[in-house]
Design a protein around this nucleic acid. Structure first.
Lengths: 173, 173
DNA sequence: TGGAAAAAGGACTGATCTAGTCCTATTTAG
DNA sequence: CTAAATAGGACTAGATCAGTCCTTTTTCCA
């Protein structure tokens, strides 16, 4: 299979959640609660997204993260690249020369480039905004989920939506 | 990055080599020599491709592997699926239910499906035949490569082409 | 009929990479 | 000055993959 790392998977989940309230500033803890992903991991991913310019960050007591751009201007390809490095199905594509002994005479290289471009283009065409348009009616029916809201004092609890209950592992074959 | 395993990478290299002589039957050792990939690994991959129906195999002294279909009828997607399992960028796509706790209410699932389909379609459109059309003029100039043909008694030596000198590692981000 | 050559199948190991945690430093509001 | 937040990086355990090796089965041929 072609596999994507969980970092990228989680990153897309987190950004999708943020894109639902594009103006809002989220703390790492609030996002972890909203998505039910492990807080340290969420923190790590948000750091990475901020470093790559997809998120704006504010330090200090009233700090947090917010989208650096509108959801329509962020592609899935960008998110994956930011967290997992450049989109390159083979190392010889990943412009690290010297890896492949026969690089100058590698006839397959052009083909890999083609395959890689096809995948990259497909991912570039999917925007974060489109990711938020998923089954909105489901959101309503989710109200019937187990009402375990004892952590309701949490600022984030009202946004707790089970849609992100557990981010699924990540493979693309 | 989105990463493909070396198995799939090597598999594509091997099949591309075979597609250049579609009628020929290759032994695992001959293909390993032609592509300069480690023989046991080549053997392992060929077994897998035969098991999945992409190759026909013959046992015995005059045995070997040959393409089960014309190169134009084999897509890159098929090869990857055969060696690495179904093309699924996330586990929840890989129809193994129960993995994702919130599966029935996962709004992101539909989006992953979309992303996955985009990648799968891109890979299905590339045929093995197209892979063989890579830079044929390069083949000629390769004659100037180091003429270390002391293993020329090997049946395969005449086909030894440096194009496959070393299959590059494999990542798709 | 026996030996050699080849595929089939599976067990095993070492290395790599990832997920996840944790600790410390820095920033900033109040 | 303190608390809450991000920034950065070190570290560990687990999973996965690449690669090797061994045994069995099949088949040609002398």
């Amino acid at each position: 299979m072609i596999r994507m790392t969980k970092q990228a998977d989680y990153g897309i989940v987190l950004l999708t959640r943020m894109a639902e309230e594009p103006e809002r500033q989220f703390t790492a803890a609030a996002l972890a609660a909203a998505t039910r992903l492990p807080a340290p991991t969420v923190s790590k991913i948000l750091k990475g997204l901020a470093r790559e310019g997809l998120l704006d960050s504010l330090r200090g007591v009233k700090g947090g993260y917010s989208l650096a751009r509108a959801g329509a201007a962020i592609s899935v390809a960008e998110i994956i690249s930011a967290l997992d490095g450049p989109i390159a199905i083979t190392e010889c594509i990943d412009d690290t020369p010297g890896e492949c002994i026969q690089e100058p005479s590698c006839a397959v290289r052009g083909n890999w480039q083609q395959i890689n471009d096809a995948i990259r283009l497909a991912l570039e065409e999917i925007t974060l905004e489109e990711m938020t348009h998923g089954l909105p009616q489901e959101l309503v029916t989710l109200g019937s989920a187990p009402a375990q809201f004892e952590e309701a004092q949490f600022e984030e609890a009202q946004f707790e939506d089970a849609r992100f209950e557990r981010a699924r592992p990540v493979e693309v074959s």
